[in-house]
């Protein structure tokens, strides 16, 4: 077998285009999904039984079904039910947002749980109204504690977003598959694609470890 990696530079632009879509999708969905996850976490800790029930069912459902099914459902069923055409990018964002919301809600739920009752007591003793307690004390600490896990969630999303290639979105995976098929050089091309994913994900994984140590030290009071 003869391997020829020199064919790759020709496709650098196409691969870069695919990577850019993957990165955009990941960044958008970690923000929208994170926001959804935060609201879900609040709902799951709320006093209302209805809110708790609805949010729990939501989270369990999206964690308990394959992402691929969720993608297909949003791409092919949602337009039929709503009667509107959605661009594939919008569909991708919706699907991954819904999924990421379920995942990050667990992250936020545990980080909210670590802000102790004593912090709440201190807030009351200082006369801080509920709004200030949440925005200035609880939220920043919960966010800070959640950051390493959120970053891990983002890395997972970056990798799992490759599933959108199955519904025809031209992300890094999709572009790689296409080049691989057209050149009949799967070993070279798919190896390169794997390495590109790794080159982005690995430094972030290391960053999570460092960040985690720092944040834990800072909040250790």
């Amino acid at each position: 077998m003869h391997l020829d990696f020199s064919i790759l530079p020709r496709f650098a632009d196409a691969l870069a285009y695919g990577l850019w879509l993957t990165v955009r999708l990941t960044l958008i969905c970690i923000v929208t999904g994170g926001a959804l996850g935060f609201l879900l976490a609040l709902a799951r800790r709320s006093g209302s039984r209805l809110l708790r029930a609805v949010s729990t069912v939501y989270v369990e459902f999206f964690r308990g079904t394959p992402v691929l099914i969720q993608l297909f459902w949003i791409f092919f069923c949602l337009p039929i039910l709503l009667g509107v055409e959605l661009s594939s990018f919008v569909s991708g964002v919706i699907a991954l947002t819904l999924y990421t919301g379920a995942i990050t809600s667990e992250t936020f739920r545990s980080s909210l749980g670590t802000v102790g009752r004593e912090q709440m007591d201190a807030c009351v003793a200082l006369g801080l109204p509920a709004r200030v307690r949440i925005t200035s004390v609880i939220l920043p600490q919960a966010l800070l504690r959640a950051t390493p896990t959120l970053l891990s969630n983002a890395i997972s999303l970056f990798k799992e977003s490759s599933l959108v290639s199955a519904v025809g979105m031209a992300d890094l995976m999709f572009v790689g598959q296409n080049i691989s098929n057209n050149t009949a050089r799967p070993v070279e091309v798919l190896t390169a694609v794997a390495l590109i994913y790794f080159a982005v994900a690995f430094p972030l994984t290391r960053a999570v470890a460092v960040l985690e140590g720092r944040i834990l030290r800072k909040l250790a009071v």
Binding site: D121, A122, A125, L128, P140
Partner: peptide, 26 residues
């Protein structure tokens, strides 16, 4: 005002920020 056994300072805020939070916000 109350002071607790286990400090209960806000760990994400500097000393100065801990002191000015309530006067400014309340």
């Amino acid at each position: 005002g109350m002071v607790f056994q286990h400090y209960t300072l806000f760990p994400h805020l500097s000393v100065l920020q801990n002191l000015v939070l309530a006067p400014c916000k309340v």
